[in-house]
Computed example of a mutant assay.
Amino acid sequence: MSESRLFKIIYHLLDKGRASAPELAEVCEVSVRTIYRDIDMLSGAGIPIYANTGRNGGIRLQDHFMLRNAILSEKEKQEILMGVQSLSAIQYPAADDILMKLGAVFQTAQANWIEVDFSRWGSIKEKEQKVFDILKQAILERKVIRFTYYSSSGNTLRRDAEPVKLLYKDKSWYVFAFCPEKSDYRLFRVSRMKEIVLTGKTFEMKAESSNLVLPIPEDLGALLQLELSFPDECGYRLYDTFDESAISKTESGYKVQAALPENEWLYDFIMSFGDKVTVIWPERLKDNIIQRYENALRHYRKEQ
């Protein structure tokens, strides 16, 4: 007999209140006869489950029944604890208390298997954690935030936003939020958000927000197909940045073929390799990098 099927029956009854045997058979993908055997087994195990006939009959649990932890296997208990541990690692409210209580109920040692540190290397951890605490409170309590935003175009903007969720993408944290000024949803990069405060205003979550495809940040730039080559000594940096499928080994080093957004990050990244990178394609990218180096030389020569 499947323990997971017994749990599914109990969960369904807790959720619906009552159900017919054919309904449970369809949910569990077994025969009605098997469901009645399962009901007998649950009843014999001390679960207060009843089958009544008549117009308002059906299978139900005793009122105020609470699921005991005995129905869970040791593996399932550990998976639940590990899930709550994940919430604790990202400082979810009251997760530590929940973890402690579940550990006592399950009589199972807590698995301290994950730790998350939002702060960047060289930063003040407490300061960055405060930012995430504000954003977390704003999302959970539906509070409007106000912040100064430094865009890649060089503009400094003061914005209000209705935050929906935090998103971690490509080594950066973003806030997915509705921007009243633009009357649309936007992704704001957290590292560019400064002076973040709660305005005291609340907002109603818009129904469409859960079904939206996350937008690409406005300042990300269009994707550019490129091909680069690097010597052997640059391998570690390539695997820090690119998916393994984009990197191929050559006799003299590595070749990278990828589609990356053409923005300041791309030029900064390529130029950070100095003479340890060769742009194979496109030629336009190589010409733009040459122009940037020439501009830098003119700047420093002018200072001399």
Rank of each mutant, 00 (worst) to 15 (best):
L6V: 01
F7Q: 06
I9M: 06
I9Q: 01
I10Q: 04
D15S: 11
D15A: 06
D15F: 03
A19F: 02
S20P: 02
S20M: 05
S20T: 11
S20Y: 04
A21T: 10
A21P: 01
P22I: 08
P22Y: 09
A25Q: 03
C28D: 03
V30E: 01
V30D: 01
R33D: 09
T34Q: 12
I35W: 00
R37K: 15
I39S: 02
I39N: 03
D40E: 14
D40V: 13
M41E: 11
L42K: 02
S43G: 08
T53C: 12
G54N: 09
G54Y: 03
R55T: 14
G57N: 11
G58D: 02
G58Y: 00
I59L: 03
D63V: 09
H64D: 15
H64E: 14
F65C: 13
L72P: 01
K77I: 01
L81T: 02
V84G: 00
A89Y: 03
I90Q: 01
Y92K: 09
A94D: 15
D96F: 05
D97M: 06
D97V: 07
I98A: 10
L99D: 02
K101H: 07
G103V: 01
F106Q: 10
Q107P: 00
T108W: 04
A109Q: 14
A109Y: 08
A111E: 12
A111D: 13
N112A: 07
N112F: 08
W113M: 15
I114S: 10
D117A: 13
D117K: 13
R120H: 12
R120I: 05
R120V: 08
S123T: 05
K127T: 15
K130T: 12
F132G: 04
I139M: 08
R142A: 08
K143C: 05
T148L: 10
S151W: 00
S152P: 00
N155E: 10
L157A: 05
V164Q: 07
Y174P: 00
F176I: 06
P180C: 02
L187A: 05
L187Q: 04
R189H: 05
V190M: 04
M193C: 13
K194F: 02
E195L: 09
E195D: 14
I196D: 00
I196G: 01
I196N: 00
V197D: 10
L198C: 03
T199M: 08
T199K: 10
G200L: 06
G200C: 02
E204W: 05
M205Y: 10
K206Y: 02
K206C: 04
K206W: 04
A207L: 11
A207G: 08
S209E: 11
S210V: 07
P215L: 04
G221Y: 01
A222L: 08
L223Q: 11
L224T: 13
E227T: 09
L228A: 11
P231D: 13
D232L: 13
C234I: 04
G235L: 07
Y236N: 15
R237K: 07
L238Q: 06
Y239E: 12
D240H: 10
D243M: 13
D243C: 06
E244G: 15
A246E: 10
S248T: 14
K249S: 07
S252L: 12
Q257H: 10
A258C: 14
A259P: 03
E264V: 13
M271S: 15
M271W: 03
D275R: 15
T278E: 07
T278D: 02
T278V: 09
T278M: 03
W281K: 15
K286Y: 09
Y293R: 12
